[in-house]
Amino acid sequence: MADKYGRKRENLLHILQGIVEQERYLSDVALTEVARELDLSAAQVYGTATFYTFLDTEPRGKYVIRVCRTISCDMKGKNRIIQAIEDALKVRLGETTQNNKFTLLETNCMGWCHEGPAMLINDQAYTNLTEEKVIEIINDYAKNK
């Protein structure tokens, strides 16, 4: 990663983003390695990583589901969507399925308020969700991806 993005401080975020894209999270080993490569302290690297919601430092599933919890999506029933996902995947908010395929999280407004409730699965946005629709989407991921 450091070879790809360069070893300057301003490359740190690119490197961390690159690792998360591949591994879905930043392990302690990865963080220490990055610190060594960029000649920064581990605390600096860790401090930077933990600042950003999308730079997870805990293990995550292959697919990270982030349901918007902000007001427009809340008004359109995001709680029902979360409930439906929890039931379908047998996890609670914040948890990862046993097969490490899905992690269910909440996130703040993601710019789809006119089509709420909305969620992201990794980079992909899904909008105008209903309970049926979200189950269909999850099933599709479970079977085909």
Partner: peptide, 23 residues
């Protein structure tokens, strides 16, 4: 340059910090 999920990074000086690879 991609952000990583932090509303505060829309504030201009926080955005510079972020672009420089910092919190």
């Amino acid at each position: 340059q991609m952000g990583s999920g932090a509303y505060i990074c829309g504030e201009e000086s926080a955005l510079f910090e972020s672009m420089e690879g910092k919190r």
